[in-house]
Design a protein around this nucleic acid. Structure first.
Length: 262
DNA sequence: GATGACCTGTGA
DNA sequence: TCACAGGTCATC
């Protein structure tokens, strides 16, 4: 779904309400939802009887550790996925997601021995479940990324700075909305080749990443940025009132201010 | 690295 | 009916 901020909400929900609970079985009615060769027949015995011991997150990947030498479960929320525990979700509803309940949208469920459950509801089926995921395919997490790491990825690519910031193998956790908000705050044109940014501009990007994550986390989601409200036809820049420009960059709809993003 | 594909729901 | 959607993956 969701970008790093929503995945962080899901992680916290799991940490608060699911840790220590024993898995009694799984419900995986959609074989397509299990990735990298995983099958329900292999997954169920691998996790049954184990307790959840930690809920971690790297970028948009949720990592559920189990006890002893039990496996780690990797959950991807895709574009429309949410985590429900005992039927309850975390955070605000997705702006572009459906909040209706439909049993057919429950693509994967962990059943707990106490009778509750951890379910993934995902209308669009673009999420995924995997076992012992390779966490190193992802770059440093956006919530913990350093200025040095930002400098490193930006100076090594000629791609548009937006494409670089959205590349999960470089920095993990920023999606389309958050990157637009970051570059709007930093005053950088999303189409600029990343390596052309000077030292001062890279510093602004780093600070905007920190500020954007802090702000949207406090406010309730990736859609709560100041820039987001103007992501519509006729939207104007909240800083200077200039009509926003709408383009496709890195394959994604991009809104930016032609006046102050340069 | 840009592009299209994946899948399905929503709103114009 | 169509365009579009906050993500990833394979392919050119």
């Amino acid at each position: 779904m969701p970008e790093g901020v929503e995945v962080e909400y899901a992680r916290r929900l799991i940490e608060e309400r699911a840790l220590g609970r024993k898995i009694a079985g799984i419900d995986a009615p959609d074989a397509w939802y299990l990735k990298r060769g995983l099958t329900a027949a292999a997954l169920e015995p691998a996790v049954t009887g184990h307790r959840l011991t930690a809920a971690r997150r790297r970028g948009k990947l949720l990592l559920l550790d189990t006890d002893r030498t039990g496996p780690t479960l990797g959950l991807h929320l895709g574009m429309s996925g949410r985590v429900l525990i005992d039927g309850h979700a975390a955070g605000d509803p997705l702006v572009y997601g459906s909040n209706l309940e439909n049993p057919a949208w429950h693509r994967f469920t962990l059943r707990f021995a106490d009778g509750g459950s951890l379910a993934m509801r995902d209308p669009r089926r673009l999420g995924a479940v995997e076992l012992d995921p390779d966490e190193d395919r992802l770059g440093p997490d956006a919530f913990e990324v350093t200025q040095a790491e930002v400098d490193h990825v930006l100076t090594r690519s000629r791609a548009p700075v937006k494409a670089v910031l959205m590349d999960q193998s470089r920095i993990a956790g920023l999606g389309n909305l958050l990157v637009d908000e970051v570059l709007w705050r930093a005053g950088i044109d999303p189409a600029r080749p990343a390596r052309e940014l000077d030292r001062n501009e890279r510093r602004r990007v780093y600070r905007a990443v920190r500020r954007t994550l802090q702000l949207t986390l406090e406010r309730g989601g990736s859609h709560t940025g100041d820039h987001m409200a103007q992501r519509v036809a006729g939207g104007v820049c909240p800083k200077d009132g200039t009509p926003f420009e709408r383009r496709t960059i890195a394959g994604r709809t991009t809104f930016s201010c032609p006046q102050h993003q340069r």
